[in-house]
Amino acid sequence: MKLKLPILLAVLQLLPIKAAANECICALCLFGNHHMWRITGEAMAPTLDSGVCAVSRFIDPVKEPPAPGDVIVFKHPTKANTSGVFRVVATEGNTVRITAGKVILNGRELPQVPTVPLIRDIQANPNHRCEDASLIKGGKCPVGRYVETLPNGRSYEVLDLGYGNLDNTRTYTVPPGHLFVLGDHRDHANDSRVPKSDGGIGFVPVENVTGIFDDR
């Protein structure tokens, strides 16, 4: 008995899964329009936490321009054969400024609603960071978690460790054909807040975008 295509795709959507400690399986990727990623850093936590397996869909950014709120995959602007994964916050013509850890988009502060802190096991995962060492109990500590909402209604969770070097920035104006991206872990991301001259990625050219995580 053959599975109908919608049923088969539904089954494949249950993947990716971890087959071993450092291995992921992606049956959906066999069709050629998806790619598997094993997240190794903390920049997009809690949305894409370190160690998880996640599937992105290949896109043509000309036919499907990334929108604010999208989590995208892109070719690194300065490092050959390197890809980045961040969330689009602003597109061309928008102004962005970070003040006291809050995003000011086109002159208006994006609302951040506090939610239950995320408990990080810093013993099990050395990549995890703690906001306040005095709160560590049993190798675990809480990290501030907030729900941030864009003007288009897209919402997502962000993490905040308190004051950080990138909590206050100048005002950026996104140039034509570019995107301004941020990591959801705001104190653990080398994103558009850091210019290329300082080892960051700066603005991301739209033409560099190769994929999108549809379910993030």
Results as ranks from 00 to 15, higher is better:
Lys79Ser: 09
Lys79Ile: 15
Ala80Cys: 01
Asn81Ile: 12
Thr82Ile: 13
Gly84Glu: 14
Val85Leu: 13
Arg87Val: 06
Arg87Gly: 04
Val88Met: 14
Val88Trp: 01
Val89Arg: 00
Val89His: 12
Val89Asn: 15
Glu92Gln: 06
Glu92Phe: 10
Asn94Pro: 00
Thr95Cys: 07
Thr95Arg: 02
Arg97Ile: 08
Arg97Ser: 11
Gly101Ala: 04
Lys102His: 12
Val103Thr: 13
Val103Ile: 10
Ile104Asn: 06
Ile104Gly: 13
Asn106Gln: 11
Gly107Gln: 08
Gly107Leu: 03
Arg108Met: 12
Arg108Trp: 03
Glu109Ile: 07
Leu110Tyr: 02
Leu110Phe: 06
Leu110Ser: 04
Pro111Cys: 14
Gln112Asn: 13
Val113Asn: 10
Val113Glu: 14
Pro114Val: 00
Pro117Arg: 01
Pro117Glu: 13
Pro117Cys: 15
Leu118Phe: 05
Leu118Trp: 11
Arg120Gly: 01
Arg120Leu: 11
Asp121Pro: 00
Ile122Val: 06
Gln123Glu: 13
Asn125His: 14
Asn125Arg: 10
His128Gln: 11
Arg129Val: 11
Ala133Arg: 10
Ser134His: 14
Ser134Asn: 07
Ser134Lys: 09
Leu135Ala: 08
Lys137Asp: 15
Gly138Pro: 15
Lys140Gly: 00
Cys141Asn: 14
Cys141Ser: 12
Pro142Ser: 11
Pro142Ala: 13
Val143Glu: 12
Val143Leu: 07
Val143Ile: 08
Arg145Ala: 13
Tyr146Thr: 11
Tyr146Asn: 07
Val147Asn: 07
Val147Asp: 13
Glu148Ile: 05
Glu148Lys: 05
Thr149Leu: 00
Leu150Asp: 09
Leu150Lys: 05
Pro151Thr: 13
Pro151Ile: 03
Asn152Thr: 14
Gly153Ala: 08
Gly153Arg: 01
Arg154Cys: 10
Ser155Val: 03
Ser155Lys: 06
Tyr156Cys: 10
Tyr156His: 08
Val158His: 09
Leu159Asn: 13
Asp160Gln: 04
Leu161Gln: 12
Gly164Tyr: 07
Asn165Phe: 11
Asn165Ser: 02
Leu166Trp: 04
Leu166Arg: 12
Asn168Met: 08
Asn168Ala: 01
Arg170Val: 14
